[in-house]
């Protein structure tokens, strides 16, 4: 009776399935289990280790590092990796300035823990550059004045990139709904939409 159907983008799904046998995935889980058994032996909670190990791919480069569990992905990218292109504005998962791609899909990096991105692939605005060459979406934003102050722009560009990865010829309406989670306080929306339309042409 059970027939498993897959949506057309399955990269993250597939990934999570593979995680079951993945080395680090299991380690994290075992880590949890060990803590429980320790907690049972001693009535007191187990002593906290400061940081948890994590393997993460950022802009195509695999990194194994230690991270405090409560660190958000945005803080991790900016503080630990010095990738300050990702901006933190509301720090609340509402404005979109911190948008990055997690396994190809847009997420608010201030709104998820770095550990949530373990064993996954993160792409930030820095990852769009190829050496000194601007990415077509970046170029389109420049050519079409898709910003004023520019602070929301990295998030806007990553949200646009997420749309274009799914759909290389989005309509205006699709761009508007796909980028509705990104605020621009300067109100440069018409130019932002124009830029994404132009990027899709490239």
């Amino acid at each position: 009776m059970s027939e498993k159907k897959k949506p057309h983008s399955i990269s993250r799904r597939k990934f999570l399935k593979n995680l079951g046998s993945g080395v680090v995935g299991t380690t994290v889980a075992m880590h949890g289990l060990q803590k429980i058994s320790k907690a049972q032996e001693a009535a007191e909670p187990p002593p906290h280790t400061d940081r948890s190990p994590m393997t993460i791919t950022v802009n195509g480069k695999q990194i194994t590092t230690l991270v405090q569990p409560q660190t958000s992905l945005a803080d991790f990218l900016r503080g630990q990796l010095q990738l300050t292109g990702t901006k933190i504005v509301c720090n609340h998962g509402e404005c979109g300035a911190c948008t990055v791609l997690l396994n190809g899909e847009a997420v608010y990096s201030c709104h998820i823990l770095a550990l949530d991105a373990a064993n996954k692939s993160v792409e930030t605005i820095e990852g769009l550059l190829e050496a000194e060459e601007l990415h077509p979406v970046q170029e389109a934003f420049l050519d079409h004045d898709g910003y004023q102050c520019g602070f929301c722009t990295p998030g806007q560009i990553m949200a646009a990139q997420a749309i274009l990865l799914q759909n290389s010829k989005p309509t205006r309406a699709e761009i508007m709904s796909g980028m509705s989670g990104n605020l621009c306080r300067c109100g440069a929306y018409p130019k932002i939409i124009e830029s994404v339309m132009a990027a899709a042409e490239k």
Binding site: G25, A29, G32, L33, S52, P69, Q70
Partner: peptide, 18 residues
């Protein structure tokens, strides 16, 4: 507490056990 523990079970059996 200034830190958190995250338990990440990989399947239902492990979750129930935890």
């Amino acid at each position: 507490t200034d830190r958190i523990d995250i338990i990440s079970p990989v399947n239902l059996a492990q979750l129930d056990h935890i």
